[in-house]
Design a protein around this nucleic acid. Structure first.
Lengths: 155, 155
DNA sequence: ATTGAAAGAGTCTCAGT
DNA sequence: ACTGAGACTCTTTCAAT
């Protein structure tokens, strides 16, 4: 499936550090990992070419931006063959930020980010229920996010 | 709750662009948004001071790193007062990358990233079931991630 | 608040090891 | 494969508007 990659401890340490903070300079990261800044640069270039790392993303505080509601939605489909068609419709709704096709109770599993409960209600009631193929949905509103972190890729 | 912020369209456009790609230079982003690179710099500094933006993170391809299994776990607690104690235990398991306290069927909702199914089985069976306070769990393994994006903060 | 230019810092290339 | 130094680019500061 996925190409064979030969990543050593240094590669993983670099990824691990920069998944948390990509603003550190190569020189400073090199000091932490006991190599030169040049070596960090060479490794990152290799990782980019191998498509293991794919750029950096700004991390923003959604609450401060006015997005106070995060919810998860379990979706039951009328037939599982409708997955692609429904996924396409869901992608048109900008509040739906993530969609997974899953095993278990639900056919698909979505995450939604809204400004407030009334916007959530609008998306759930007026947008989702109009999509052909969706049988019904179950919503789990997040009251608190305990943590949200990256998997620990390095020892 | 959250401090009053006065963000204009330019602020939101900057955040929107850089949530997707934080590597663009201020000069280039300025060209896109029809202001100078200096203005981009001033705005980003303001957004950092307001804690609206909190650094950048490297985006890595988990599949290429050998993490082939993403799953969601609905957790039933014996009593909802046990939430904090259980959250603390779950945080010790590095494969659990996210935990939310939710309304609805489940008391809490977790996301887990594993190398393979046998590692998932190990965490679910040997680690989760040993935590006092967890009544039972339901697991939804992601067979495919249709999309995973940021909420659209700008028009 | 925005701008442009100068100073400072970081990235990238490359020749040497 | 790693390093260090030079060339280059980007960020940061600041005086002017």
């Amino acid at each position: 499936m996925s190409a064979k990659l030969n990543l050593d401890k240094l590669d993983l340490d670099i990824i691990h550090h920069m998944m948390e903070n990509a603003e550190i300079s190569y020189a400073d990261l090199g000091k932490k990992l006991f190599v030169s800044g040049g070596t960090i640069h060479v490794r990152i270039k290799k990782l980019q070419e191998a498509k293991v790392v794919k750029g950096t993303k700004l991390s923003a505080d959604l609450k401060l931006l006015g997005y106070d509601v995060i919810a998860f939605i379990g979706i039951y489909l009328k037939e599982s063959s409708l997955y692609d068609a429904v996924a396409k419709e869901l992608q048109k709704i900008p509040e739906i930020v993530r969609l997974n096709y899953t095993t278990g109770n639900y056919s698909m599993f979505a995450e939604i980010v809204c400004k407030d409960i009334s916007q959530l209600r609008y998306v759930l009631h007026d947008q989702l229920q109009k999509i052909k193929g969706i049988e019904r949905t179950e919503t789990f509103i997040s009251l608190e996010e305990s943590f949200n972190r990256n998997v620990k890729v390095a020892s």
